[in-house]
Design a protein around this nucleic acid. Sequence first.
RNA 1: GCCAGGGUGGUGGAACUGGUAGACACGCAGGACUUAAAAUCCUGUGAACGUAAGUUCGUACGGGUUCGAUUCCCGUCCCCGGUACCA
Length: 973
Amino acid sequence: MEYNYKEVEQKWRQFWEDNQTFKTGIDTTKPKYYVLDMFPYPSGAGLHVGHPLGYIASDIIARYKRLKGFNVLHPMGFDSFGLPAEQYAIQTGQHPAITTEENITTYIRQLKQIGFSYDWTKEVRTSDSKYYKWTQWIFMQLFNHYYDKDANKALKITDLVEKFATSGNKSVNAVCDEDTPVFTSEEWNAMSEFDQQSMLLKYRLTYPDESVVNWCPGLGTVLANDEVKDGVSERGGFHVEQKKMKQWAMRITAYADRLIDGLNEVDWSDALKEQQRNWIGRSTGASVKFQVDASTVQENAPEFIEVFTTRVDTIYGVSFMVIAPEHEYVPFLTTPEQKEAVDEYVKWVASRSELDRMSEVKKVSGVFTGSYVINPFNDEKVPIYLADYVLAGYGTGAVMGVPSGDQRDWNFATHFNLPIIPILDTQKDIDKQADNTKEGKYINSGIINGLEYKEATKTLTTYLEEKGIGKGKIQYRLRNAVFSRQRYWGEPVPVYFKDGLPYLIEESELPLDLPVIDKYLPTETGEPPLGRAENWKYKGEYEYELSTMPGWAGSSWYWYRYMDAQNEQEFASQESINYWKAIDLYIGGSEHATGHLLYSRFWNKFLKDLGLVPEEEFAKKLINQGMIQGRSNFVYRLAVSNLKSLAEIKIVYTDIYFSHGYYTQFKNGELSLEKVQELVKSVTDKNLWEGFENPKFDLIDRHVDVNIVNNDILDTNAFKNWREDFANAEFILEDGKYICGVEVEKMSKSKYNVVNPDILVDKVGADTLRLYEMFLGPLEQAKPWNTNGIDGSFRFIKKVWRLFYEDLGNFKVKDEAPTPAELKVLHTAIKKVEEDLERYSFNTVVSTLMICVNDLGSLKCSKKAILQELVILMSPYTPHIAEELWTLLGNEAGTISYASFPKFNPSYLVEANFEYPISINGKVRANISFPTDAIPADIEAGVLANEIVQKWLEGKAPKKVIVVPKRIVNVVM
RNA sequence: GCCAGGGUGGUGGAACUGGUAGACACGCAGGACUUAAAAUCCUGUGAACGUAAGUUCGUACGGGUUCGAUUCCCGUCCCCGGUACCA
């Protein structure tokens, strides 16, 4: 009897839904396990085979943990705010909510087909106002808190106000803007409401700030770096410039140290942790103030320029200073002679994105301002340059140039003919390249001459602090996160403006719903789309914030909402948060390494400070799944042409398609016209070259829908039916097949390489798809999608079925006692499956299951005791067929989901004899055979076993014996 | 550029802690069953040489450490992700 996967799978999906098999609640009698997928953005292209990869893995773990007796929370939802729906709205006028709703419906339908054990009653959508009410609520908490460095946590802003009123801000050790002045309580109390509120903004964890954005005047909007290609907008090709704009910011830097320290307590890959550490970029160094040489500068020029350096010890090697081209000091430092050159340079830089500037480090560019600073240590005059490798937003926007110790500075100095001063006696070849060594003794270095690195740094820092011109400082690469977007489809910021200052709306007024607007573009005056909303004023009077929140707002806390998704009083009840606590296993793409995962950790720490959540880190274990790339297929169309003269080229595209092998020959210049003409004759009587003088041909590659290609072989009939212009296609085959070309590209609609899971579920069933996706390779590795091997997984399912049914359709499972050989096969599998799942090696489990089923097939095993355990073992991977077989074995329907995982018994694996492989002098191989009960303990333990070998060599003493557990690796004679 | 990861047969990959490289699967070739096809089952399948036993080479490339390296170290090349407004 053939296994009818369609019927069986449908039946069990229905069963799970009808019986709410996977609905989870608080159950204190069981240990809890929270396994979560990074929720998807519901794009218009629907779910492709890359999405389920991580979902299948997490589902396997969820099902495995249920078998292990855990109460498992395994939810799914949608990160449904985002740019694509808004772009679509701009193009078509359809409200993003409608687009989003449609896409989510598709996603849910597709997800349900794969048999995930989600508790759908806990679904969340970030664009649902019942959800974003709480995103806005968290924003309000951030606004109402500041970071106290002494308490090392966020505290209420009202506490801060109290402190200001009683003792000013001198004794307050809090994270705030760099330019915050010191004031007394008297001064504070004398301040106007406006000044007090402005001052508090310098402390709040979210605050309005000036930041640089990609401004596109042509579109009247701000663009993501992603939307800018080569200095122009991807959409429309308009000019893009860098512009400063008022934006909400999140004071994530307040948490920088805790974000670094917290990495020690999570089980994430070292690579990912390293990336986060580097992103935060804590560097210890010093800030140094350089006095500006007043003789050449303009009025209002600053007295000092401050730089941050991690190598204060190189200060005597400074031969120039560079400030960012957009630095506010630039106009004051530029001399009249240099003005033209400086203006031109600044203009050029403004046209370049930050990414361009960072990327093209090899090309040195810059311009002299005409002014100088004085090196405080040796009173040397140092020229001030502008260069685009210095970014205004990082540090002080100014750096000191030490060509002998830094390659970029060296390149700059060489380009502008600036001196390169050696500062360490160990530096070599500094006329050819920089040498960044810290070894050796200082030379040409005033007060640190003859000292070594550590002492020198200490001496200099002390000197700086004594003179009040600098201090030891910890600097972070991490910048405060920009939190506004000039977009429509995002959470409105629950803020209104009074007298130019932001105020929160009342909590009771949440959610602040997105207003309805008719067009989704910015306003004519350059305001964000929300500026179009009519009569949208707070209390009918005050202007609301017109920006919306960024994509990451809603995704920075969603795992708590799943715990109690319907709660209208809180973002989740304390009871549920304290039960589920944190995510035990989180699976998602590595592209979120520094975005989502960092912001989420930040918000989680903040919520922890408020006492709302119990854990400092939100995800204990994290696995990054690799990206699935597309694998495009090509057909090769024959084009016939003649080249009479350049003016008279005639090209005719024929309906003849050549198999890939001919294309390869063609590319290598091995395919002659005669050969092509001969091949063409086999499919058509027409002379395609009739009337052509000097005939030529070409093979044109075209993408072909991968869904009508199987194992790179084209389904020629499906191709003819695919599109009208292929209806009359003729094919030049190889070995009777039309073989397509292959290329790895991004998955995209236009390349016809999007493989849709629905089609595969229809063709081979959800179990096969689940099995195959896991079998593809290590979860964490990026790989192109390839459907070629899926038959192997399909065969596995059919083989399992045949363990239960004879060819004639009789159920053959017997209630007999299993043989030792059968038990060995089963228990080998139990051990491997368990071990591999515990280390999240999803692909090797599939091999283990395949070997187990093959072996049981060879043993013609149809014993109930064996098959029952096998079915449980398979159930996380192939739940549908497992459910079916489980009931066929006489168990109650649906109980397999909470059955217990087979217990491994090592005694079934013990052999009577064990062969120890041995090699002598690295070459000759032989085996020593021992009865198992006589295996020497020192071989098991992997220690030297000279005696044993000597005995085996009949008395000859080996020089050296190298033994590893269960193997004598080498005997050196 | 910078940060991080990767490169193993015709293909996807396995080898977990430095210990018999290529498990498992796809594909291919041959065979069995069949009127035939499909399905299924069996055998072979890294390369070179050899009738064979076997020998040599072989984990991107070049070096190093080690009795022993796909694994550790140094250098080079190539591919993928991130690079702060894609999500």
